[in-house]
């Protein structure tokens, strides 16, 4: 059943719905019914993530070195904040239950699953996403290695694989194959590109040694 929500917002929705029905009735379908004014995002990357009307709070997110003040809902997961509010769509969601690792981002350098992390819980924390790995137009060595060794197929899990690999190599710059496998075991790849992912991580380690 629907949850309770702010009356003011409800009213807006009601109005919108009526104009929608009116539009249908007259056979004229227009785009005028979208209440874009209710999108309340303070960051400049405003896009179309619209509100349920539940209470929101402003959080301070430091993402890829840049500070964002974003109004988020209490129930909001970090992956949605990144993808829908800030249009940082490089972070993917596959399982939505912390089983596959596609949504891996770094929080204070530690890999976490952003699909089971509440955005409010990372207030004032330092977040790195796939979009923040390259610096000054130069790819991170792990990114380079994934291209060189073809550590991808469809590419949908690749962001998460790379974020996990970055964290793994930070903790263990010189991993053996078995350590790579263990370190990467929280990231599923449905295409089964694992062998090339292992090669990529080992090649990135090699780059780090050079």
């Amino acid at each position: 059943m629907p949850k309770k929500r702010d009356k003011k917002i409800d009213k807006k929705h009601q109005l919108s719905r009526r104009s929608f029905l009116k539009g249908v009735g007259s056979g004229a379908v227009t785009a005028a019914v979208i209440p874009s004014s209710i999108a309340a995002i303070k960051a400049k990357e405003t896009i179309s993530f619209q509100e349920t009307g539940v209470e929101k709070e402003v959080v301070n997110l430091i993402i890829n070195g840049r500070t964002y003040n974003v109004e988020v809902e209490a129930r909001e997961i970090l992956a949605d904040t990144l993808r829908k509010r800030l249009n940082l769509t490089g972070t993917k969601i596959i399982c939505g239950q912390g089983a596959c690792g596609a949504c891996t981002v770094l929080v204070d350098g530690i890999p976490i699953y952003s699909c089971i992390t509440l955005t409010m819980d990372v207030n004032n924390r330092d977040i790195t996403t796939i979009e923040g790995l390259a610096s000054d137009g130069k790819l991170h060595p792990v990114q380079e290695a994934f291209i060189e060794k073809d550590g991808m197929q469809c590419g949908f899990c690749t962001s998460g694989q790379i974020m996990s690999a970055v964290a793994l190599l930070k903790n263990n710059p010189n991993p053996a194959l078995e350590e790579v496998k263990l370190g990467m075991s929280g990231n599923l790849c449905r295409c089964g590109a694992y062998p090339k992912i292992f090669e990529s991580v080992l090649a990135a380690a090699e780059k780090g040694r050079r």
Partner: peptide, 14 residues
């Protein structure tokens, strides 16, 4: 490859 490893590749999901 660069589009994929930087997260710039746009899937329908994105």
């Amino acid at each position: 490859g660069e589009e994929i490893v930087t997260g710039k590749a746009k899937y329908a999901f994105d």
